[in-house]
Design a binder for these strands. Structure first.
Lengths: 238, 238
DNA sequence: TGCATATTTTGAACCATATTCAAAAAACGA
DNA sequence: TCGTTTTTTGAATATGGTTCAAAATATGCA
């Protein structure tokens, strides 16, 4: 029946409205300050209505992550389409990821927070599943690139699955982001801030997999050039 | 004056008592359940007394991290003493770290939580500095191993600082732990659980740095053998 | 259209907990 | 022993997430 369809759609629209407003509030004052009552009021709804959509505040935060994942995915899909040597494409993933996170610092922090047990366990099971599902296409793309490398004989998996190799890059990105975003940490250990450190480390990892063509890190301009051409392709230059 | 010295000592003892009890409570029901009032009562003190030691709950959690860091350091110091090729020693750091975290799952989760902006920013500045200071000796040890590798001509830094190279391994460990501890994540992406995946990835990274002797990952038993001998040396076999 | 019923929305009350602070207790010094 | 300073206490406060009975609205039917 048409009526219930319309209701369903309106409900979905309202959910997006809540998420939009939440994003706005977070952009203004950080996700720590986000309050359910304030958010509801900003949308001209009662507090209780929020709970028709989200089982808890943590559930809402996770819903935000889910939505952001769509943007994330879009970026990755662009790279999926790109006809280029596999090594350039896998690195493009890292550059895109890094650039994305740099622009949306709140989002990295949020993602870090959401993966915390305290938050993860307080979201609804459905939402957690949703978030994990969001990772699937991203994984598929990364796996695809690894597979391309294998097919092109640019990479010998040496018995490892495509997932394991993709996972290595993921873990390195993840860890780098966490460390970078912990205030004072890089400074305390005199590690230069900025994406280049991570890029070099990523190339070390890829070199270690034997992923051809190997990158020569003795020549700093080679990396710079690669990053620039990549950003140009991805149109992520300011 | 002697009196104030004794007072200082008693104060320090009480702080340790609080931390001991907190650890106990966390072991029993997880750090999410930790409540200031409950903790105080468990120690037969009033709630307010806790705040003589910790400026906030987050400050207390960070104090726990600081204490744990000492254990962490102890482990690393053992490796520092170990006379062995640099590549074995740097890998020993990873094995020790992994093993430590496996045994103390609550501790990884806590560490992840503490590095979150929400917690980090709510601890006292003094405590944050303390925690960052705890990292210094660990860094020094890791840097030392990297330096040994360079001195022994097992590693060509190619212009990178010892810190940058150490940081790479740190980021990979950190990221792996985070991903491993996010419930359902490995399963969703069919990545096998267990330390071996991380160990292989670490060797890929070290290989990529050109850290001699390179490890051959086509031969799975080689890695197993290495890990076993390492655990034996570190006496971390159950 | 009017009425009975089902659904949705509301927001004040509720609750859990971290934090504070005025009063009580203890320690100190003369 | 007594006045003063320091420490401890725990009830009161503050914050903010969550609930739920009542009100409002929508739906279905004669």
């Amino acid at each position: 029946m048409g009526t219930s369809e319309r209701k369903q759609r309106e409900r979905e629209e309202r959910e997006q409205l809540f998420l939009d407003a939440a994003e706005q509030l977070i952009a203004e004052e950080g996700f720590i300050q986000l309050q359910m009552a304030k958010l509801a009021k900003a949308c001209d709804y009662a507090t209780g209505t929020l709970y028709q959509h989200f089982t808890s505040k943590e559930d809402l935060l996770m819903a935000l992550m889910v939505r952001h994942s769509a943007l994330h995915l879009e970026m990755f899909e662009q790279i999926e389409q790109w006809q280029a040597p596999s090594r350039q494409r896998i690195f493009a993933i890292c550059v895109a990821e890094q650039d994305f996170n740099q622009r949306q610092a709140n989002y990295v922090k949020l993602s870090q927070y959401v993966m915390t047990e305290a938050v993860w366990e307080n979201a609804s099971e459905a939402r957690r599943q949703q978030l994990l599902q969001c990772g699937q296409p991203i994984c598929r793309i990364v796996s695809g690139i690894v597979q391309q490398a294998i097919d092109d004989c640019d990479l010998d998996p040496q018995g490892a699955s495509t997932m394991e190799l993709g996972y290595a890059t993921w873990a390195l990105c993840q860890g780098s982001h966490t460390l970078e975003h912990t205030k004072g940490l890089l400074e305390a250990f005199s590690i230069p801030r900025g994406p280049m450190t991570m890029y070099r480390n990523m190339h070390r990892l890829l070199n270690g997999m034997g992923w051809q063509p190997l990158m020569d890190l003795t020549e700093p301009t080679e990396l710079t050039r690669l990053v620039d051409s990549m950003k140009q392709h991805l149109q992520i230059n300011k």
